[in-house]
Design a protein around this nucleic acid. Structure first.
Lengths: 154, 154
DNA sequence: GAACAACCTCAAGTCGACTTGAGGTCAAAT
DNA sequence: ATTTGACCTCAAGTCGACTTGAGGTTGTTC
């Protein structure tokens, strides 16, 4: 076993702290979401900072972003320094906007469903769930909102 | 052009009215989400009722359900009769519950992001976005937000 | 009765986000 | 020095939800 009191983390340590599998961590690295140093023997070593980036990845997934979108956000943060407050709050603000928007979408849906509970909806014409044209008027090109659900599992 | 004033719809008509492509409609049918009759020449003909089912599929996707989950919901509705109000409101109620739950999750996330906007989050330990354990504490066994739920019971 | 769009089936491809496997190397403990 | 578990790369597989393609048929219109 690698002794676990260094400031650099092995893949296994980093993965388990981030709550993901080792292959997933490697995959994230391949996608440019995290970075590592290598030992003389070519093994990955992660800085603590990498955990923060991984946590941001998880948060982004909860927000409903694709890895590419998350990468775009991460790319605006310094790669090997703690982000400045300005960096950080800009990112938070953008994501909060996305979340707020999604919440509004779901609330529209929720009220449609609620009005459906009693309506019987025997005629198509009346039902706002079935006829979401008005409700979803904003829907542009394929904004079928990407559902990503990570089953943290384990 | 097929003349467009029958009570039965061709694939093309049904697909365009449902806002999906023809292959997608065929795919849905293959998955058992809709059903059709066939002409003597083996072409699909859809009842109006199929449009309602397709609309339910779309709604379910907006709710965030998989096609399997949506199928499970549809399977409890009569296949070739309009659903009774009881059927309908039971489904709406279940879906409304899912939506409400998802909204609550996103609201937790939203408030985390909001508090992040100003916090700087220079230390991992404090940030609720980065440390969602407490925020997500209400969440029971696994299952981030119902998607892989084996109780696809809609 | 020919043109031609719309239809048919079946197979394979795509994309995102991973997982799984084969075959081989590194490093901490004994 | 050897063991053993953790690590390495590269390739291929999986899953959901579709899309694309090839090759052939139907049905309405002129």
């Amino acid at each position: 076993m690698p002794h676990t009191s260094h400031s650099l983390l092995t893949v296994g340590e980093a993965a388990s702290r981030a709550g993901i599998t080792v292959p997933t961590l490697r995959y994230y690295e391949e996608r440019g979401l995290v970075h590592s140093q290598r030992t003389a023997g070519n093994q990955r070593r992660y800085q603590r900072l990498a955990l923060r980036r991984l946590a941001i990845v998880a948060a982004g997934q909860r927000v409903g972003l694709s890895l590419d979108q998350i990468k775009a956000a991460l790319d605006e943060l310094p790669a090997d320094r703690a982000p400045s407050q300005a960096d950080w709050s800009a990112m938070s603000r953008r994501w909060a906007g996305l979340v707020a928007r999604r919440i509004r979408e779901l609330q529209v849906l929720e009220s449609s469903l609620e009005s459906c509970i009693g309506c019987g909806c025997l005629s198509l014409g009346r039902c706002s769930l079935i006829n979401p044209d008005d409700a979803a008027a904003e829907e542009g090109a394929g904004s079928r909102w990407a559902r990503r659900a990570r089953d943290a599992g384990t």
